[in-house]
């Protein structure tokens, strides 16, 4: 027989919203990170894409700003159980950044200022599914939320959307990142509730 929590009634999500299993809706914007927030000035910021052949493509802040911007409105799902609907971002699609990059790699390791890492299949970063985001709600992205710029991959749990992004490394083989090495799921699809290894 299915488990019932005696006396628990709960709160249903508002009409028209659909929550992934185990999640609840928040209207705040909680912060999750494993250490102090790195303070990176826009002038010091650089992003590189490195191919498996060792070729590097580098953008500085002015270079990023010169690229065509998009304003995606997306839902966020954090493995710590909160979901936030309809968040409005400004940023550059990974399709733009990867347009001139020659690669046969299928795996990506993303590294942040501060040393955080996360791994993602390349297929999950292309075709309009991922951005380098530098604006949130019409303002600069705050440092505690990953500013000056973070990866945004909203169809996966939010730990994949690395804050303070510094490098996107295209790799022939997969390598687990920070949380993926600590027992969290390698892929992290919230709709399949892939929180931990084995889920």
């Amino acid at each position: 027989m299915a488990f019932i929590s005696r006396g628990f009634h709960g709160r249903r999500p508002s009409a028209g919203t659909k929550l992934p299993p185990g999640q609840y809706e928040t209207t705040g914007f909680p912060v999750l990170s494993a250490g102090p927030t790195p303070r990176i000035r826009q002038d010091d910021w650089k992003l590189s894409v490195t191919t498996e052949a060792g070729k590097q493509h580098v953008w500085d802040w002015a270079g990023l700003m010169a690229l065509p911007a998009e304003s995606p409105t997306v839902d966020l799902h954090c493995v710590t159980k909160w979901s936030k609907f309809g968040t409005e971002w400004q940023g550059v699609s990974l399709d733009v950044l990867l347009a001139d990059v020659e690669t046969a790699a299928e795996h990506v390791l993303v590294t942040s200022y501060g040393g955080y890492t996360t791994n993602i299949p390349l297929a999950d970063l292309v075709d309009g599914k991922a951005w380098i985001a530098y604006g949130y709600g019409g303002s600069d992205l705050a440092p505690e939320h990953g500013g000056p710029a973070r990866l945004l991959v909203p169809h996966l749990y939010l730990w994949k959307s690395a804050k303070w992004v510094r490098e996107i490394e295209l790799r022939p083989s997969d390598v687990p990142g920070f949380w993926e090495s600590a027992g969290y799921h390698n892929y992290g699809d919230p709709w399949r509730e892939q929180r931990y290894q084995g889920d």
Binding site: G114, Y116, F178, S181, A182, G183, Y196, Q197
Partner: peptide, 19 residues
């Protein structure tokens, strides 16, 4: 930030328990 040390029982499914 260092790579997180791997805790024990990795690979085991974290199963639901009734307490």
């Amino acid at each position: 930030m260092a790579r997180a040390a791997i805790p024990g029982r990795l690979g085991d499914r974290l199963r639901w328990r009734t307490a």
